[in-house]
Design a protein around this nucleic acid. Structure first.
Lengths: 246, 246
DNA sequence: GAGTGGTCTAGACCACTAT
DNA sequence: TAGTGGTCTAGACCACTCG
């Protein structure tokens, strides 16, 4: 006797906890069901609350739990598949109801975006803010950067920021010939403003989808879309509109 | 007087710290440079080590820092863009040097994969393990599931698990007509075996790319590829082979 | 006001890497 | 063996939601 465990490679407690709780979620809980609170769970497993939280954080990262301050921890539904394929070859905002224009204003692009647009950081751009809603839930917040040079027809318009202005920018953009687009996906953490629109806390993990719209040999616009990583699965259909099983 | 701050919405300390350190990284540090250790940084900012770590974790999640136990915290290089576009319409392993076959064995598919393959969870499948290497660094670990029914020519072969066996499975697969593929990307945390191959700790954030290979009206194979989320940016070119600027 | 998750502290010890 | 990041504890207080 003496040794409590024979594990030659001791597994961290939170890792083991995550496994145990994960299995319990499969067998003993239904989607939407509320878990015991963190203090009770920690006591039940005989660990400090911080350790328990580390396990819950991982499960939330994997989309299996949802935690809301002041409410509790619930079992999350399977991730929603949101289509972000590039097969349509269309400008943003054509015949779609998935994206809602929120507003638009004149401004400048952050350095990384300016580089993609092949402009300098102080050149004026139209910034269009849109929100993607699926099944009643906001899943993504987007900032669309359109250099003034891409939509010269908008030069004289002086609509104060708002939905109408956003629609005008999109309309002007759609006049251009779209040559192609490319896209990248990376992990990020939600900025304060995006987090608010996505009903998450700042710093929440998000999937950042950066799209470059190409026209006449150059980059006519760049979209930076921030998807909730906990609830979303991005799908890239290739053959027709195949939908992945959940 | 009296109130120390007029912030109506007090920002968490770790959030503020993340901003401060992030700016310092831009201005005062070069890629690869090593930061002061956590205990010193915490003391310098007058916070507990756990709080400092929360800020570092976020920066690591955003790919700006790299932490290695026993070594220290270094400034990470910009994320590597890895192409995962579906424009080529080819089976895995044709004329590529980006993926290295590691080994293969007979086994069964996890429930979620079996569902995509439209088989039951106990049907035999070939499981091929591959590793994607870019610029000398392992960026992704893949498990390719091929139902025995998809490659009947392999029925009699009884090569014990190994690289040769993996190559045979891929070769047989490439005999089939590829009708299309679809792909999904979601956030996950690295399983222990993937983590080891990717030189990360278990639970590290990863981008999970699930690909379904379609042939003759069904799903001939499913690939589950686990990309390091800290170092990778997935790119989906659409117009030729456009490469996103880093 | 009661109850929840979120933040923060000041320690301790462990696993790993380099010298 | 010294120094690093990783894990863990046992508290405390705060911000938020809801009855």
């Amino acid at each position: 006797m003496g040794t409590t465990q024979l594990e030659s490679v001791p597994e961290p407690k939170y890792w083991h906890l995550k496994t145990v709780i994960g299995e319990a979620l499969d067998s003993d809980f239904a989607v939407g069901e509320i878990l015991p609170n963190e203090r009770e769970l920690a006591a039940r497993f005989g660990v400090a609350r911080a350790t328990l939280r580390q396990a819950l954080e991982q499960l939330e990262l994997e989309g299996r739990l949802q935690r809301r301050r002041g409410v509790g921890t619930t079992v999350a539904p399977p991730r929603v598949g949101v289509d972000v394929s590039t097969t349509q070859h269309t400008w943003p905002g054509v015949g779609e109801d998935t994206w809602q224009s929120v507003d638009s204003a004149a401004g400048t692009a952050p350095a990384a975006v300016a580089r993609l647009l092949e402009i300098t950081a102080d050149e004026p751009v139209h910034v269009v803010r849109r929100l993607r809603v699926t099944e009643g839930q906001p899943v993504a917040a987007e900032l669309l950067y359109v250099p003034s040079g891409s939509v010269p027809g908008l030069g004289a318009v002086e609509v104060p920021g708002g939905v109408d202005r956003a629609r005008s920018v999109l309309r002007e953009l759609q006049r251009l010939a779209l040559d192609g687009q490319d896209r990248s996906v990376e992990l990020g953490s939600a900025r304060a403003d995006d987090a608010r629109e996505l009903d998450r806390l700042p710093g929440a993990p998000v999937l950042v989808v950066t799209t470059r719209y190409l026209s006449e040999g150059g980059t006519a616009a760049v979209s930076v879309a921030t998807y909730r990583a906990d609830t979303c699965k991005l799908t890239f259909g290739d053959s027709g509109e195949m939908v992945m099983a959940s």
